[in-house]
Amino acid sequence: MDQIRINVSGNSTAQQVYNWLHGLILRGVLEPGARLSETEIAQQAGVSRQPVREAFIRLTATGLAEVRPQRGTFIGRISVKAVLSARLIREAVESDLIRMLSANAGTDVLNRLEQQLVAQRKASKAQDVETFITLDDQFHHDLAVAAGHGDVWDVLEGLKSQMNRLRHITARVFDHQKLIEQHEAIVESLHRGDGEAAEQAMRSHLREVLNDLPAITKAKPEFFTD
Rank of each mutant, 00 (worst) to 15 (best):
M1G: 12
I4G: 06
I4M: 10
I6N: 04
I6D: 03
S9P: 00
S12R: 12
T13Y: 07
A14G: 10
Y18F: 15
L21G: 08
L21T: 08
L21I: 05
H22Y: 14
H22T: 01
I25K: 02
L26C: 04
E31V: 13
R35I: 01
L36R: 02
S37E: 06
E38D: 06
E38H: 12
E40H: 07
I41E: 08
I41G: 03
A42H: 09
S48W: 03
R49E: 15
E54Y: 12
E54D: 14
A55P: 08
F56H: 09
L59A: 02
T60P: 00
A61W: 00
L64K: 08
L64D: 05
P69Q: 04
F74D: 03
I75C: 11
G76W: 00
S79F: 11
S79D: 10
V80G: 03
V83T: 01
I89E: 09
E91K: 13
A92P: 00
A92D: 06
S95R: 15
S95D: 07
L97M: 10
R99P: 00
L101A: 09
L101D: 13
N104K: 15
A105R: 11
G106S: 13
G106P: 03
T107G: 02
D108V: 14
V109M: 02
V109Q: 10
L110G: 06
N111T: 13
E114A: 08
E114Y: 10
E114R: 15
Q115L: 11
R121L: 07
R121S: 12
A123W: 07
S124V: 00
K125L: 12
Q127R: 15
Q127P: 00
T131P: 00
T131Q: 13
F132W: 14
T134N: 12
D137C: 03
V145Q: 12
G148W: 11
G148T: 08
H149D: 04
G150C: 01
G150K: 04
G150T: 01
D154K: 14
L156H: 04
E157C: 09
G158F: 04
S161D: 12
S161M: 10
S161V: 11
R167S: 09
H168P: 05
I169F: 09
T170Y: 07
F174T: 14
D175E: 07
Q177H: 11
I180A: 06
H183Y: 03
H183D: 10
E184C: 07
E188A: 15
S189K: 05
S189A: 15
S189Y: 05
R192C: 05
D194M: 02
E196V: 13
A197S: 14
A197I: 05
Q200L: 15
A201Q: 09
R203Y: 05
R203V: 15
H205A: 06
H205D: 02
R207M: 11
R207N: 13
E208Y: 12
E208R: 14
L210V: 06
I216R: 01
A219N: 08
T225Q: 12
T225C: 02
T225G: 02
D226Y: 04
